[in-house]
Design a protein around this nucleic acid. Structure first.
Length: 490
RNA sequence: CGGGGUGUAGCGUAGUCCGGUUAUCGCGCAUGGUUUGGGACCAUGAGGUCGCAGGUUCGAAUCCUGCCACCCCGACCA
């Protein structure tokens, strides 16, 4: 495995890029801006999907699937929605190719122009609300709680593996409700689901908050979000949940008759997380020696490496190793016994370290004599010799400890890099140093944009559950009710 | 989409300014042997449309034109 990639301190962006590629998570494809997610990376995504999908179902949602293509006319029905996405849409204009007349390959058949062009979905609100119109007549049809796992396309100028690609994978939940209160409740419920997932499964602490008007989703009344801090101090939006009000119901004429016999427009929410979470995962935990994966998402949680001088020793080690494998599997732990003779143990150690496998077990001749194994953990690099007695239980606990430790480490890092600022000078200085800066803001878009222009920092969110604290806006000096989170962001 | 940079074997590179036999070196790969508690060693070998397409020239990795891809910085965004 390559050692020739920069440390985080030397070049954070390059470190990330190299790590994603060299750890076999993903690579650039022949299509500009699009990535190939490789098996090891996809395995992590599948684990994320499995946990999230279970949580969605536990909160009453069902999966469905809507088309990749959206008629262009649907898009223009919700004004702010079009405005938000118009500049980054891929459009299908034709439906047939023909052989080129000069015999060189194929060309678009001009005869096969579509009457109405199709947009490749950048998100599915429009096609879904157009569909919901047919599903909803009465309050008895509500709520509709649907999620879809899908790919979407946003034609980005500048892309980075996982963090921003032209095509990405995600899930989008789209719900319909009879009342405003119920829709807002749903919006917040799903925000909590995301926060719980990112903190407990990904081991990444987040702030829950509301976006400012400026950062709001195109077509939403309120956008709730979770914001995480990466190791370079920048913020990364890890998930969003939108309260859409009646905007899409009005745009697509989706009404229902209430118990009182009166008609009203339906209330909506949408919420999503994407393969961007993969980027967050890498940037939150990994180090200069490679990936560090939280046990709950690691495709391989435990790897066993035999150390032997000859076939007899290997055979004896294999007996012990297989027993450990069986016991770990019974505990639901994914384990790999790597008895390949094509690589030396040292090579394997480095390889699995680079791939972020949380726990490594090495078994050699000395261990056979003593009834022990050597256990190494990836997060701290600590090694210890353990007795075979109760080994699998100890490993199981160790995995839990690693999961906890990663979260605590990330939390400590975030706390150490979160500062308060009470004047604009102090603010600029602290933003320069990186990290989050909690500061008072007067609530206007003008102030927000000016601060962004001068410092590159944006308001990541107005945190929920933060203590109210009167103060003066660092920029304008006007009154403010609470501090908001400023940071440079991905 | 604007500014800058890079493109030579799977990866990293020398050579490019100043054109000249068979394109350099390391890693990796294959085969054989010795090895195996932190990326082993020796020997032999395979692997190249020098990003692509034109052009200049007796001759192009090298000079010229156009294009493509990727990286960094900006604008835009999850």
């Amino acid at each position: 495995m390559a050692k020739d990639f920069p440390t985080r301190a030397e070049n954070y962006a390059q470190w990330y890029q190299d790590l994603v590629i060299k750890a076999d998570l993903a690579e650039n494809s022949a299509v500009r801006g699009c990535m190939v997610i490789k098996p090891y990376g996809y395995a992590i995504w599948e684990k994320m999907q499995a946990v999230l999908d279970r949580k969605f179902k536990e909160t009453g949602h069902s999966n469905a699937y809507f088309p990749l293509f959206i008629p262009k006319s649907f898009f223009s029905k919700e004004a702010s929605h079009v405005e938000g996405f118009a500049k980054e849409c891929a459009i299908v204009t034709h439906y047939r190719l023909k052989n080129a007349e000069d015999g060189n390959g194929v060309v678009v058949d001009p005869e096969a122009k579509l009457e109405e062009e199709l947009i490749i979905r950048p998100t599915s609100e429009t096609i879904i609300w157009n569909t919901y119109r047919g599903w909803i007549q009465s309050y008895r049809d509500l709520p509709i709680l649907v999620n879809q796992w899908a790919n979407v396309v946003r034609w980005e100028m500048r892309t980075r593996l996982f963090l921003r690609t032209a095509e990405f994978l995600w899930q989008e939940g789209h719900t319909a409700h009879a009342t405003k209160e119920e829709a807002i409740e749903e919006t917040k419920r799903m925000l909590d689901v995301y926060a719980d997932f990112v903190e407990n499964t990904m081991a990444v602490p987040v702030y829950k908050g509301v976006k400012t008007a400026n950062e709001r989703f195109a077509g939403a009344l309120d956008t709730y979000c979770i914001e995480a801090m990466m190791q370079d101090g920048k913020a990364l939006q890890a998930g969003t949940s939108h309260f859409l009000g009646q905007n899409f119901a009005k745009a697509f004429d989706v009404k229902f008759t209430g118990k009182d016999g009166k008609q009203d427009f339906v209330w909506a929410t949408s919420w999503g997380v994407s393969t961007r979470l993969m980027g967050a995962l890498v940037m939150a935990h990994s180090d200069d020696d490679g990936l560090v994966l939280p046990p709950k998402l690691a495709p391989i949680q435990v790897v066993i490496v035999p150390i032997h001088k000859n076939d007899e020793q290997l055979a004896a080690i294999t007996v012990v190793a297989n027993k450990i494998v069986d016991e770990l599997k019974k505990l639901g732990i994914s384990v790999k016994y790597d008895d390949r003779d094509t690589h030396k143990p040292g090579w394997k150690f480095s390889e699995y370290e680079f791939k972020g496998v949380p726990v490594r077990v090495a078994i050699g001749p000395r261990d056979l004599e003593n009834g022990t194994v050597e256990v190494a953990r990836r997060d701290t690099k600590e090694k210890s010799v353990m007795q075979l007695t109760d080994l699998t239980l100890k490993i199981s606990h160790l995995l839990d400890h690693i999961q906890d430790n990663l979260y605590k480490k990330a939390l400590t890092f975030r706390e150490e890099n979160t500062h308060h600022a009470d004047s604009y000078d102090e603010f600029k200085k602290k933003i320069e140093q990186g990290g989050f800066v909690m500061a008072h803001w007067d609530g206007t878009t003008e102030t927000e944009l000016k601060i962004k222009e001068e410092t590159k920092a944006t308001i990541r969110c107005i945190p929920l559950n933060a203590k109210k604290e009167k103060g003066k806006c660092i920029f304008s000096g006007n009154d403010s009710e609470q501090r908001v989170i400023f940071a440079q962001a991905y």
